[in-house]
């Protein structure tokens, strides 16, 4: 039988943040790389993000934040994934973060952080190297 796993990604914007240009561009770049991208839109609670990730059975969640609430929102997503037994899902983040927050986010379990100026090709390459579709 002809079987082939595709990488499935959820691109989400948690919190009260209306800046979705970045996440849309990322979604598009992922699509062009051959991933299936579930785009869930603006103003999501971490609970909603995690539920969507589970229902859609994604391999990775890309969180976008440009409004400064990342130190609460990102770790909360990780916490909820763990509670739901879904912490095998890779989580990375993109947006604007004070430099000192980045190591803290990584320590909390965010696999990678992408900041403005990162070429799209680099973001895609990172996913290809670090996210494997579930076996």
């Amino acid at each position: 039988m002809n079987q082939k796993r595709k990488i499935r990604v959820l691109v989400a914007k948690p919190g009260l943040d209306g800046h979705d240009r970045g996440s849309r561009i990322i979604a598009r770049a992922y699509r062009d790389a051959g991933f299936e991208v579930v785009y869930s839109g603006l103003h999501q609670t971490p609970e909603e993000v995690v539920q969507a990730a589970i229902q859609e059975d994604v391999d990775m969640i890309g969180l976008s934040s440009l409004a400064g609430a990342h130190m609460y929102l990102f770790p909360r997503v990780l916490e909820l994934l763990k509670e739901n037994g879904a912490d095998d899902i890779v989580v990375c983040g993109g947006g604007i973060f004070p430099g000192e927050d980045i190591p803290k986010l990584k320590e909390a379990g965010i696999k990678e952080i992408f900041v403005p100026g990162t070429p799209l090709g680099e973001v895609v390459k990172w996913v290809e190297e670090n996210v494997k579709p579930r076996t």
């Binding site: 595709k6 979604a27 699509r31 790389a33 299936e36 785009y39 839109g41 909603e48």
Partner: peptide, 22 residues
Amino acid sequence: PTSPFSGGAILGDRIRMQRHSM
């Protein structure tokens, strides 16, 4: 739809159904 060129897809229907996710 899947993109015939890359094989990828953007699945955006959830955007309108957000309120039911919980």
